[in-house]
Write a protein that binds this DNA or RNA. Structure first.
Lengths: 219, 219
DNA sequence: TAGATTGTTAATCGATTAACAATC
DNA sequence: TAGATTGTTAATCGATTAACAATC
């Protein structure tokens, strides 16, 4: 029996899908029925062959000379990502980042609806964040069941990451979007995507240093 | 003359560096003078060989049987990332995400100090966000010069992304951390790192769908 | 000393890119 | 029709992993 730990294939391609969607959706407003891979590639500074390879993963078939049919292409990408099925989500930790993510409207376009926020601060419990009610962590199991929550977005301070994660798992939630710096330990049937702001900042930092070095050496 | 568009090497390794730092810093509190690659690998669910390969990029030399000297290792990573040099940064757009990032203390440990926020909303200008003053976009050039701002963190709504980016570039800021969904057009000497929350969510979504399919097929 | 761990060289793996026939 | 664009097969490239000698 394969475990949930097996590696996901096409990871880089999957990461590019949302930006394809953005471009194609914007193009859709022109009313043109077909969009070419070349056009998408130009918009995103990618190679056309890469766009075609990526799109082929979704099973969409293009027409030579014309391109891909816009409406079916959007549906193919959304279906591939599972964004055509609405999922209830919760934010664990009503801090800065948690509040920002709760108010991030774009997720609605991706089939994710944040229906609850959980926190331990008595001053926050009973209030709302961007219209979403804040509950006590104690009520996580019952609220998760009632609202059919499928995804937990973890934005608690790092020292509480693993214990919050354990509570999420105990409440039967099997998908965790982890914004803490902690590598979470979870059962085999729980999937975790870690979002690490520092890793992107590390790339920017090295680009800055590299550019600096080059400028110095070119003088 | 090579352009700033050339591709960065070791991208995956660079992305892992911050998580190494987190583990090593936590280990440092034990007082042990050496940390092994095997230990780091265990903490992060990675292969030891990958940790060793990554660390070798920083130029650090380990001791067989003992491991890497903790203090020099931290310094080697920070120096490689350029995190040993303090840089002034600004957040463009005092919305949800901009405020959250302004209040994110971890950046201070990475040599980045957010010294100004810019917005176009008259109600926000003149106030502070997490203690950082909010300025009018008009004053960007002068404030950027006075405070020596090196990095702009772009968190404006997508329709304003390119124009805000142009203003940043005109103000002489040459490093942009882009949190919008827009692919920015910038001069050759400006580096951009795009942070796309949707791409991580796309991975989580496909993992969820894949797990679901497997569970169905195993029944 | 023995064995854990490093660093290097080679092999494997997966992603990107190139080449090109098919075709609307 | 001619040429732009697709989809497939092969080549290249870069990252990961394996093997193993060196060594504290």
């Amino acid at each position: 029996m394969p475990s949930s730990r097996e590696k996901l294939n096409y990871t880089p391609s999957i990461r590019r899908m949302p930006s394809y969607l953005t471009i194609i959706r914007a193009f859709q407003r022109t009313g043109e029925p077909y969009i070419s891979g070349t056009y998408i590639a130009n918009e995103l500074n990618l190679e056309p062959i890469q766009v075609r390879k990526d799109l082929s993963i979704t099973g969409i078939i293009g027409k030579p000379k014309k391109g891909y049919p816009v409406e079916p292409l959007i549906q193919a990408i959304e279906h591939y990502l599972g964004w055509d099925v609405e999922k209830a989500a919760t934010v664990i930790g009503a801090g800065n980042l948690g509040s920002a993510l709760t108010g991030y409207q774009e997720f609605r376009n991706h089939g994710m609806k944040i229906v609850a926020v959980f926190d331990t601060d008595p001053l926050k419990i009973g209030t709302t964040v961007h219209g979403v009610p804040v509950y006590s962590m104690d009520s996580l199991p019952s609220v998760a069941r009632e609202l059919g929550i499928a995804i937990a977005i973890l934005t608690v301070p790092s020292p509480f990451a693993q214990s919050s994660c354990d509570a999420v798992v105990a409440a039967g939630i099997k998908s965790i979007w982890n914004f803490t710096t902690v590598k979470l330990k979870v059962p085999d049937d729980v999937v975790v995507q870690r979002e690490d702001l520092s890793s992107g900042y590390a790339l920017l930092s090295v680009m800055m240093r590299t550019r600096l070095n080059r400028q110095l050496s070119e003088q």
